[in-house]
Design a protein around this nucleic acid. Structure first.
Length: 725
DNA sequence: CCCGGTAAACTTTTT
DNA sequence: GTTTACCGGG
């Protein structure tokens, strides 16, 4: 039942025909194939607005996205529409929440723990050792990845697809123990959030009916990135014919490594036979030149339904192409380019730098810093993945979920309290024999007879802190956190490593506390709610003050747009990544990734590569990415001006002492107390030397008071004078 | 039990 | 260049 698009409807007024049709479409399944920049977000939010206006209650609408950022963005827009009760969430966070109410059906506590990849791997490591695999031979992370891939495809190990080898063998062997352990500890990994909720919907039809009745309207964004489990979930939440609207673009499918199946787009029309499909092919975002370049690249994919994006936008400027000598040059050139844009009046938050993988960001970051350009790095090492944060959260987790042995094991001797490996093993054995969780064993002094006096004292302190924190948790999250930090003297522990990170850790802890305070005032639903909230966060969305250049991986860039984009590291082996280059499917996904990167730009685009790049500690000669060759020459213009300027800089640098290969004898003289100069950090004093020969490293304290560690072979330290006595 | 020093491996991409 | 895991002495 398609509503005719009423041209006088204000919600449709500024939309093109197909956009309006998608917004106006009534009940029943709808698939929107939205090309890059075709106004997809607009259509989705407008459609929600129309539903609300036409009398659908917000609480009956469920909008699911793929990433936190997309969810936050959509939630923001929906809120502006007054859709306060619309549920906007990622698949994972939606399931996590549902499982708090329904998890008991599978024997899970409401306050179950959510294990991230790190937690998963530490658990697997234990199990590998128990099963007699040497963890040196088989990496827990490989086993974990394979388990994850199976679960995302809704498969079990006996359903084949494994092949032979050590890792598959370990997966088969550990599959059941792993899940039994999780269950016993009241914990789920990320994949279980989806899988367990799916199981509940399957095994308890009355529950499924309840959810179907509750969410009468379901929207899925970035549908091309859903995996099998997510799609199965969708079908159960909203069975055919169903008021389900999926939006996606097959050319932007970039998550197959996480189990995404483009196949879902094809299956959708089969599983929802009454589907109406609407294509959005008019691009409003980019200049014609940028769009032409992007289309030319994606056209090289074989497995693809031909699709042409149109635009009425002006041609704009050609893409700036840079081939730098090395990564440092590339980075400074990009910084120069951005400085030029800024001087031309461009707000820096309209400039983005993209790269294939996080490790490439370091050099770029340094160059921006040197150029005095403010920047924020999106994603990367998450706040909540830092050690000190994970430690403190582990304390909180055992308060909420006493069964969580993994978290308990983590904090047993943190900060050190005389409970080393020996004591830990004894406690675990006790727990096993008594059928008790570690947390209970710790709190039962009558069982500690076989332990030494030091260990017993430590245990008592720990049990005491946990008990007090447990009480404090009744009033607020931050109160509990305070008790933990003060009761264990954690701050002192975290800041006495004697490395340069000490002060950063102190700041992080302070930030965690204020985050908890904020959560208390905003939500106030207690510790369990806080932990769930925190477990699914990834990129610290804390935007710094003022406009800043946005740096991120191409994956993180999906769904965003910027006036000016720089895409760095376009080299064979980097982008496309070495891993995927052999596999044709992998290569096509890399190409889609490149397409995503190019189509983020509204006005200008700079594409760069380096001839030599330091990769894993060695200089490698790089060939330009094949994707560069796929861009029509007419779209490209060399980035000459800055390039030439930089070249002269670089030459003088070489003359003035770019001492990559240090004189071995001079190095031998380097000792604690020697005064040295570093190209970047200036003068400093050597605090200590570790190792010998090319492995030798020096810790240098610079005039800014910060200590930094260098591998001498690469650092290019120059000996100024030897202040020995 | 803890700390320091040493060697090896490591780089996709996210929930 | 960075991080982590292991080993040996205090």
């Amino acid at each position: 039942m398609t509503h005719a698009a009423d041209p006088d409807d204000p919600l449709l007024a500024d939309l093109n025909r197909n956009q309006a049709a998608a917004v106006a479409f009534g009940a029943g399944p709808l698939m929107v194939l939205a090309g890059a920049g075709s106004g997809k977000t607009r259509v989705v939010t407008r459609r929600i607005a129309r539903l609300l206006r036409d009398g659908v209650r917000g609480s009956q609408i469920l909008a699911m996205t793929f990433t936190n950022k997309a969810a936050a963005e959509m939630a923001h827009r929906v809120q502006e529409l007054g859709g306060d009760f619309v549920r906007v969430a990622t698949f994972h966070s939606a399931c996590a929440r549902f499982l708090r109410s329904e998890g008991h059906l599978l024997g899970y506590p409401a306050d179950y723990s959510i294990y991230d990849v790190q937690d998963r791997d530490t658990l697997l490591k234990e199990l590998l050792e128990d099963a007699g695999f040497s963890s040196a031979q088989i990496k827990p992370s490989q086993v974990g990845q394979m388990i994850s891939r199976l679960k995302n495809a809704a498969l079990r190990p006996d359903e084949g697809l494994l092949g032979s080898g050590d890792v598959p063998r370990a997966v088969t062997r550990l599959w059941t123990p792993y899940h039994e352990r999780l269950q016993k500890q009241g914990a789920m990994d990320f994949d279980d959030l989806l899988g367990n909720f799916l199981r509940i919907l399957r095994e308890f039809p009355e529950v499924a009916e309840r959810y179907q009745a509750r969410f009468r309207w379901v929207l899925v964004d970035e549908f091309q990135d859903t995996n099998r489990v997510q799609y199965d979930l969708l079908k159960l939440l909203c069975p055919a014919p169903g008021n389900v609207c999926v939006v996606g673009d097959p050319d932007q499918s970039i998550y197959s490594f996480r189990g995404a199946e483009i196949r879902n787009i094809l299956d959708f029309e089969r599983d929802y036979p009454t589907t109406t499909t609407i294509a959005l092919e008019q691009n409003y975002r980019s200049t014609a030149t940028i769009l032409r370049a992007a289309e030319a690249v994606i056209a090289n994919n074989r497995q693809r339904k031909a699709k042409h994006l149109r635009t009425d936008n002006p041609a704009g400027e050609p893409l700036l192409q840079l081939r730098a000598g090395d990564a440092a040059e590339e980075a400074t050139s990009i910084a120069d380019r951005i400085a030029g844009l800024r001087d031309g009046g461009v707000p820096l938050d309209q400039v983005a730098v993209f790269y294939r993988a996080h490790w490439l960001s370091r050099g770029l970051e340094q160059a921006l810093k040197d150029a005095g350009l403010p920047y924020t790095i999106v994603g990367g090492l998450t706040f909540f993945e830092r050690r000190e944060i994970k430690d403190l959260l582990a304390f909180l987790r055992v308060l909420v979920n006493p069964l969580d042995d993994l978290s308990m094991g983590r904090i047993l001797n943190v900060p050190p309290r005389g409970l080393g490996k020996v004591a830990a093993d004894k406690l675990r054995t006790l727990g096993f024999e008594q059928g008790m969780a570690l947390r209970e064993v710790v709190a039962a002094p009558e069982l500690h007879g076989s332990l030494g006096p030091k260990a017993r004292k430590g245990l008592q302190q720990l049990a005491d802190v946990l008990a007090r924190a447990r009480d404090a948790a009744n009033s607020s999250v931050h109160a509990a956190l305070r008790v933990v930090i003060e009761g264990t003297d954690y701050l002192k522990h975290a800041t006495s490593f004697g490395d340069p990170e000490d002060s950063a850790r102190a700041e992080n802890i302070a930030e965690l506390v204020s985050d908890a305070v904020q959560y208390d005032t905003e939500h106030g639903d207690g510790l369990a709610g806080y932990l769930q909230h925190v477990a699914l966060l990834t990129s610290a969305d804390s935007q710094g003050e003022g406009p800043a250049v946005q740096m991120m991986t191409v994956h993180a860039a999906k769904g965003l747009e910027f006036d000016h984009v720089c895409l760095a590291g376009l080299e064979e082996g980097v982008f496309p990544s070495l891993r995927t280059a052999e596999d044709p499917n992998g290569l096509e996904e890399e190409r889609r990734l490149c397409y995503v990167a190019l189509t983020r730009a509204r006005r200008t685009l700079m594409v760069s590569s380096a001839r030599d790049r330091m990769v894993a500690g060695r200089y490698e000669s790089m060939r330009p990415s094949r994707f560069l060759k796929e861009i029509p020459a007419a779209c490209l213009q060399p980035f000459t001006q800055t390039w030439r300027r930089y070249q002269s800089d670089h030459e003088t640098e070489q003359v003035s002492g770019w001492s990559v290969t240090p004189d071995p004898e001079a190095l031998a003289e380097l000792r604690a107390g020697a005064k040295v100069r570093h190209d970047l950090y200036g003068e400093g004093v050597v605090r200590r030397i570790a190792g010998r020969g090319i492995q030798a490293r020096a810790v240098v304290r610079f005039s800014d008071g910060v200590e930094r560690e260098f591998v001498l072979e690469y650092a290019g330290l120059k000996l100024l004078e030897d202040l020995q006595w």
